[in-house]
Amino acid sequence: MSTPLLAEFETPEALIAAMRQTRAEGHRALDAYTPFPIEALTEAFEPRRRLVRPMMAVAGFGSAAAMYVLQWYSSAIAYPLNSGGRPLHSWQVFLLVPVEFGVLIAAIAGFAAMLWSCGLPALHHPLFVMPQFERASQDRFMLLVAPKGEAEPLRRTLEEAGARLVAEMHA
C-alpha cells in the first residue's frame, strides 16, 4: 500500500461527496478531520471500540455501591452512634451520597475512556506537520484516503471532487 493522501476541502458537502466517490472506486477512506462534528462522517467512521458508556455505567454503579457499603460499615459497625433511637442502618438517607458520588466517578471514568478511545493525550502526531492541517480545527475539511494501488488515480479523483490541496502523508 502506498502512502495515504490528505485532501483539503472548503465545505463538508464536498468532503462527503469525495469520500463516497473514493470509496466507490475502491480506495480506503481512513479518517476525516473537521472543525465541528458532521453526522455523515461520524457514521462513516464509526469507532470499533464503544467504551465510553459501558465504562461510565460500571464505574458509576460500582462506586455508588461502594459508597453505600462504606456508609453502612462506618455507621453500623465501625462507629455505631445511637442518635435519638434512629436505626443505625438508615438506608433512606444513605442513598443521597452514593448518587452524588456515583455520578462524579462515572464522569471521571467517562472522560478517561473518551481520551483512551481517541488515543489521547498525544501531543504529537504525523498529521501535525502536514501543510494546512492547522486549518482542520478552524475552517477546512480534510479527508485522509489510502489509495488502491497507485496514488495518481486517487489524486485525480480528489482534485476533480474539489480538493484544493492534496498532499502525501508520511508517518
Binding site: 478531520y33 472543525p35 462534528p37 467512521f45 452524588e100 481517541c118 501531543l123 480545527s137
Partner: peptide
Amino acid sequence: ALGWRGSARHWAVYETFHKTMAALAVPL
C-alpha cells in the same frame, strides 16, 4: 488540547461522552 485533531472518530466518541454527561448532569 491534549493533541485533539478533530478526527471523525474523535468527534464520534466526543459526542457520545458529551451527551451522556448532559444526561447525567440534569439529575445531578
